[in-house]
Amino acid sequence: MEKQQLLYGVKYGDKVHFDFAVRLPVVNDTIEALRATDEACGTTEGAAANMYYRVAVMACAITSLGDLPKEEITAELLLNELNDDDFDLIDAQIEAIKKKRMDLNKSSPGTEPSSSPSGDTGSVNNKSEA
């Protein structure tokens, strides 16, 4: 996982943190972000709730931000300290990770179900005859 740099950084205490790394968000992140959004906004509907939700998912997906402990990387911290341009940088990095994962699927021949007819079945038979 390669580290990226924010333009403006996230201020926490007396320090501004610029280095960050993210991972692919998963369903559990969605559930946690929906809970947090409903708790903070009283709803998951509307533009403000949608933005809170996106930031909450992002907070889950950020694996490191400077030298902050993971538990300090919260939706509230990002909402109060993250610049729009830096939000876009993190969002783009998450999208790049998604694209890389999808590309793995396209280039990996081993993802086909074993029941599909292919040349592989012949090699399995050859191995059993040997």
Rank of each mutant, 00 (worst) to 15 (best):
Y8D: 03
N105P: 00
S128E: 05
L68S: 09
I90T: 07
L79G: 04
S116C: 03
S107C: 05
A61P: 06
D19I: 05
A33Y: 02
K99A: 01
I97F: 03
G119L: 14
S64T: 06
T121Y: 09
N83C: 06
A56N: 07
S118K: 11
R35C: 08
S108K: 14
D91H: 00
S116N: 14
N80Y: 09
L82I: 12
I97Y: 04
D86W: 06
H17L: 12
Q4G: 00
G42S: 13
I31V: 14
L89S: 09
K98P: 05
E95S: 15
S108D: 10
E81S: 14
S107V: 15
D38G: 10
A92N: 04
L68I: 10
T121I: 04
Q5P: 11
K106M: 15
T30K: 03
Y53H: 15
G119T: 08
T74Y: 09
E2P: 06
D91K: 00
E112I: 04
N28D: 05
N28V: 01
S64G: 05
G42A: 13
P117M: 08
E72K: 13
E72R: 08
V26T: 11
N28G: 06
F20L: 01
G110H: 04
G119D: 14
E112M: 09
L68M: 07
V57G: 04
I97A: 03
I94Y: 07
F20K: 00
K106D: 11
G66V: 07
D88S: 15
F20P: 01
K99H: 01
D88W: 00
D86I: 02
V26M: 02
I97G: 03
T44I: 08
L79Y: 05
D91N: 01
E72C: 10
R35G: 02
S116V: 13
E72H: 14
S64D: 06
L77T: 09
D29P: 01
T30C: 00
E2L: 02
Y12C: 03
G9L: 06
D88M: 05
F87E: 00
E129V: 13
Q93Y: 06
P25Y: 00
G13A: 04
I73M: 11
D103E: 06
A40E: 11
S128M: 12
D67S: 12
N50Y: 08
Y53R: 14
N80L: 11
V124G: 11
D84C: 10
S107L: 15
A75W: 03
A49P: 03
A59Y: 11
E112R: 13
R101M: 10
V10C: 00
A75Q: 05
P117L: 07
L34M: 12
G110F: 13
V57H: 01
V55G: 05
D91A: 00
D91S: 04
R35Y: 11
N105I: 07
I31R: 08
L82S: 05
G119M: 10
T111H: 08
A33G: 07
G13R: 04
H17V: 03
L6N: 02
G42H: 12
V22N: 00
A21F: 01
L104W: 12
T43E: 14
S116F: 12
F87D: 01
E2R: 01
F87I: 02
Q5I: 13
